[in-house]
Design a binder for these strands. Structure first.
Lengths: 333, 333
DNA sequence: TTGTACGCGTTATCAT
DNA sequence: ATGATAACGCGTACAA
């Protein structure tokens, strides 16, 4: 491969001069600059990124930590991040994490070996040692869709509890009293959204009945489907269900139709996230929208600013969720 | 950061010895090896990946080229690749490409600067100069979901035409004669699937009527929706539609339900791909399954073997698609 | 304004 | 079996 030395030789200057030209330093005659640039173009020369990272001790790369089986919501989120990161001159390196300690350990090893400039988490980790390592090293970081109070990292997320409350409130306003909940066992947002559900019930003097809640091991459609089936099986009266993510809701709707129940005639369903596909389900899914694109941008901005200023810039960035009305909720009369 | 020199000093040996231990070379006394390993563990030392890449002139990284707005099918594909690549000790670096020449140029620049060990394309590029560059450099490469005869790169894909034919054949067997087609303007698989559609019609002596074909600018649900609407508007008799991807099919079903038409009672719909979500639509989407997981694995294997043996290993790897029966197709009587 | 020399962390080669 | 040294490609301090 052609290196900076080759260019220097061809242009009849020293490597340092070529370096100065390429990095837009001053102190180089316009004439020389042009000559160098011409040769660079002619040779199709591009700086070797590895060598550059080594000497600069930075990689212009931001890591994005995401579950191995990322869902559609996270997919949209990281597309947004990648877009804004690239705009600011950063490459994105994804770390797909499995739900195991071994996977988190492997991640820590990579973290140590890769000289990332910053890191964004779209995935909540169990192991606090990783957060601790990042904190000690002072690595610029942002959390997206969750927070970790103990570490004081900047966090980007919606008000989980309030957003869930909004969804349930919407059902109650439409006359629903017997409302089921499908949530997940893992991650703090599952618990927070469950709290929002309870708060909405309480605000209207409705009792919380544990039999109307089911906790599933994942947040995908299949889990939503089995969750709904379980709920149905318990034979508690139910006119509506709040699924804490859209994917769960999509699975719930499937279970309902398999059971010969119509949405929203026989059962109303509301989700939370507003992923792309939710506009295309039958019936269209009524849900609560997270501003995905903006949240991705904010996360990217937070780490980039931290890097630029050399110190942490923000703390929590709270976004507001809004109802998206489609056809999966019926008004009881 | 602690470096190999620090470990060497702490263990009372030279950096070379530490290097030998870490890379599992022979010629190092068991006793010394243990001492080094203990220090490494104690210090939490990990080799610096950047320095290593520089001297070894390889990065243990495979690039995966994918459209910026990758669809759910591609999402499953690259998850599979990432999984197998990691298993073989490679990191995955994604390149999200936009549909523009500028984006392809930027990609070429990165390609030159990054010392990748290999590359997989899940995205067909317009610009032959990129393929040419890869060919000249002898960079291990695999194409997934398409091929480029001119360059003779190994390619992993289903028999596009035959798979489409299978879908249409399925409709014809069930009594459908007036079958619409929703396909995309771009990429060779769109044309190939269209050819398969025509071949199935011809095989049964059915005429090809251009008014029953619509070509949309993307392969996502929204494009499928507008495509279906267009088809409906033309008022040609129609009992079934073949959408060349599942995402298009999902959009088509949405358009149908918006128009007050029931699937499959008033109109049958069949897709192609069998993405995860297709099992959860209402009605469940009848489609043709690409063995996504296996195709991802095969692509990963092809580049890894190429790297290991120092020369190209396979050529075309053809996979067979199979019908997945769900509820979106009705048998006419 | 430009060139020389050194160092970044690692591995391979060659001595010992 | 182990250590010294050079080299990978680049940026920068310092000399010129």
């Amino acid at each position: 491969m052609t290196s900076i030395k080759d260019i220097a030789r061809l242009a009849g200057v020293s490597p340092s001069t070529v370096s100065r030209v390429l990095n837009e330093r001053e102190y180089v005659r316009a004439e020389v600059r042009k000559r160098v640039l011409d040769i660079v173009k002619e040779q199709g020369y591009v700086q070797n990124h590895v060598a550059r990272s080594m000497v600069l001790r930075r990689s212009f790369t931001i890591g994005v930590v995401i579950p191995y089986l990322f869902n559609m919501f996270q997919r949209q989120l990281f597309a947004s991040m990648e877009f804004f990161l690239e705009q600011q001159g950063y490459k994105t390196q994804f770390f797909f994490l499995r739900w195991s300690d071994a996977s988190e350990q492997a991640f820590l090893r990579r973290l140590k070996s890769e000289t990332l400039d910053g890191i964004i988490f779209i995935h909540e980790l169990d192991n606090p040692s990783i957060y601790r390592y990042i904190q000690e090293r002072g690595l610029p970081v942002a959390l997206c869709t969750f927070e970790k109070q103990e570490f004081g990292f900047p966090a980007v997320h919606i008000e989980e509890e309030a957003s869930a409350e909004l969804a349930v409130e919407y059902l109650i306003q439409r006359g629903h009293r017997n409302i089921g909940l499908i949530t997940g066992e893992h991650f703090s947002f599952g618990r927070q959204r469950e709290d929002g559900y309870k708060r909405a019930l309480a605000a209207h003097g409705l009792p919380y009945t544990p039999e109307r809640t089911v906790r599933v091991p994942a947040y995908n459609p299949e889990a939503g489907r089995t969750g709904m089936l379980t709920l149905l099986q318990r034979k508690k009266p139910l006119t509506a269900v709040f699924a804490v993510t859209d994917e769960l809701a999509i699975g719930a709707i499937k279970a309902l139709s398999e059971s010969g129940l119509k949405v929203p005639e026989d059962m109303s369903v509301i989700g939370l996230d507003d992923i792309d596909i939710s506009a295309f389900t039958n019936p269209g899914l009524t849900t609560v929208r997270q501003p995905i694109f903006e949240m991705g941008k904010k996360s990217a901005d937070l780490v980039c600013e931290w890097i630029a200023h050399g110190r942490m810039q923000g703390r929590a960035e709270l976004f507001t969720a809004t109802i998206v009305e489609r056809e999966s909720v019926r008004t009881l009369t």
